[in-house]
Nucleic acid binder design. Sequence first.
DNA 1: CGCGTTTGACCCGCGC
DNA 2: GCGCGGGTCAAACGCG
Length: 324
Amino acid sequence: MENEKDRYYDPFYYNQHELNHSSSSFPFSRDNNNNSTPISQNFQPPPHTTFTDCLHGSMDYNTLSRAFDLSCSSSEVISSIDDNTKKDSAVVGNQLTPNSSVSSSSNEAEAVIEEDSTTKSSQKDKQPKGCEDGDEKSKKDQNKAKKKEKKQREPRFAFLTKSEIDQLEDGYRWRKYGQKAVKNSPYPRSYYRCTSQKCGVKKRVERSFQDPSIVITTYEGQHNHHCPATLRGSAAASMLSSPSLFGSTYMGSSLPQDFLNQFLPSYSQNDHQNPMFLHHLSHNSNFQQQQQQQQEQQQQQVQLSRDYGLLQDLLPSFPGKQEP
DNA sequence: CGCGTTTGACCCGCGC
DNA sequence: GCGCGGGTCAAACGCG
């Protein structure tokens, strides 16, 4: 019972072909001509992501990279949509039939959703107040001012990650500033803010009540600084080793240069000479073989596609949600 | 002591 | 206007 609208809103409208390459982790190297080529082996998934099925949805990756200037999610992409996609174009790479079902219990996967930049949620997002002096009066004045000028929300991207760990290492440092109970969910939602000064990037972390093994991480804003992980071995290692967004997602496409530059701030053209990078390239000599086995298992286990309703269930506040 | 987390209070937008 | 739910604040607390 598929119609165009359903397709627009279906973030799990995958490219089956790309899925089949999905178990690769960070899949690119770069040649002298600055072309990205898959280097799908040799990366080890982070310890908390036991499965490496990366599914490809679609989105404007430039948009994604701009708004989401971090590389570093440590899990796997199922799919992605963005607001424009929803409105104007069907999810690309959509050769997959949406009728197939996914055995979500058998895989570890992650979806990327770009949320609407002007969701119906409150517009009162403030710059971190921590930087301000706690002057009560000025606070109220500011609130009033903000009331007048409706602040536009930054684009948001939600990552669905199958993980037992809530706080997935993404290379940046976050400070938790709130936690709220989520309606109709036994799992709370946590609010984090990038600890870097003047960086207003926020993220929310919650667990799907439908599938508690899925962690929903929503990023909002754009980092205005480099990923601290580039300066810290372990985190960067985790990032770079992550199958993350760089599994099958981009395997079949020509990944824009600036995408990696922006999305993986720690990854420069010379990164293949970076000691950390090299470390990961050479870290796991058996990984290719393991990966092949994994791939075979995955291809048996994973059947693609969920409908948008599932995503809505997982993300009750997802802005595209349309109440009947 | 600095930094991060916890948690209750508060603010705000929205629907009724 | 009121209630609800999402989001944020900030004091208290914990930890290294």
